[in-house]
């Protein structure tokens, strides 16, 4: 078992002919992901690495290959459109890697997606991986190991740090999800925690948050009410100056809202084990699992 993706996931890549798109399509394929199609308008009929057919539209690709997940590398100005195209073609899982999509575009896209049953991960995210089965995204595959710790995070490199520490403890991961660093995105931390909690193969959950917004507080409420698996958490940005955007468009403390302190308190109240600093996540997980 796993969450959202497994060995049967059939992936198409939107923007497969671009520099990042082709590089990461290739890396996912190498990891073992079934990359069944690519989409680039006006490049239909070509093939990627001589094996993956390229189509002009997502709906053609879905009809021909039964793709059920999409990874998007389309440049920011066209990425909102690409997400809507994937949803309209019936894709069930859309993973938008693209960084720098205008907020106004994502606002419209998120509302339009309410009409569909699909799940959007991202944008501006590392993606999702079920170790040993399916990698959709830009994370380095080799740091992962199949296992029972579910990981969800708003940041790419922090996810890698946490995963590496878990692997170094001799443990492994069920599924790792990066929800992305933009203020408006698809899958929330809380929803990801819900998925991991419902997955019988996940024995412990790691949630990595950061300053800005209130998703950590919302997840904390859910954890307190429902989650009986051990949860370990870390919040980045405890010392960030207010009002400055710390790299991620979503990471900004405004008007006293979104501070690390408020998030940490909410999580502690929910019985979550807080890692004292970034280097302690792996150890906390091992302790939580009694290893």
């Amino acid at each position: 078992m796993s969450v959202l993706v497994d060995a049967n996931t059939r992936l198409l890549v939107q923007g497969i002919t671009g520099k990042s798109g082709s590089f990461h399509a290739s890396a996912c394929k190498e990891y073992g992901t079934q990359v069944v199609a690519g989409v680039t308008p006006a490049r239909g009929g070509e093939t990627f690495e001589n094996t993956v057919p390229i189509f002009d539209t997502v709906s053609e690709a879905v009809a021909a290959t039964r793709a059920n997940a999409s990874m998007i590398f389309v440049p920011p100005e066209f990425a909102g459109d690409a997400i809507l195209e994937a949803a309209d073609a019936g894709i069930q899982l859309i993973v938008a890697i693209t960084e720098g999509i205008p907020v106004m575009d994502m606002m419209r896209v998120r509302h339009a997606l309410e009409e569909y049953s699909c799940v959007l991960i991202g944008p501006n995210c590392p993606g999702i991986i079920t170790p040993g089965a399916c990698k959709i995204g830009i994370m380095p595959g080799y740091i992962h190991r199949p296992g029972h710790v579910g990981v969800v995070s708003r940041s790419g490199t922090l996810t890698y740090e946490a995963v590496w520490q878990i692997t170094s403890q001799g443990l492994g991961q069920s599924t790792c999800i990066g929800v992305g660093g933009d203020p408006i995105h698809g899958l929330t931390l809380q929803k990801a925690v819900e998925y991991l909690h419902a997955d019988p193969d996940t024995k412990a959950i790691v949630m990595i948050g950061e300053i800005g917004g209130s998703e950590e507080e919302e997840a904390a409420e859910y954890i307190q009410a429902r989650v009986r698996k051990p949860v370990v958490s870390f919040i980045a940005g405890a010392t960030a100056p207010p009002g400055r955007r710390m790299g991620h468009a979503g990471a900004i403390i405004s008007g006293g809202q979104g501070t690390a302190q408020a998030k940490i308190e909410a999580l502690q109240k929910a019985g979550v084990r807080m890692a004292k600093n970034l280097g302690e996540i792996g150890k906390e997980v091992a302790q939580a699992l009694g290893k």
Partner: peptide, 15 residues
């Protein structure tokens, strides 16, 4: 640092 989240966490570590 590489990555915004790690860069933020690095500021926290230094403090």
């Amino acid at each position: 640092v590489n990555g915004a989240g790690l860069a933020m966490a690095t500021l926290d570590l230094i403090q």
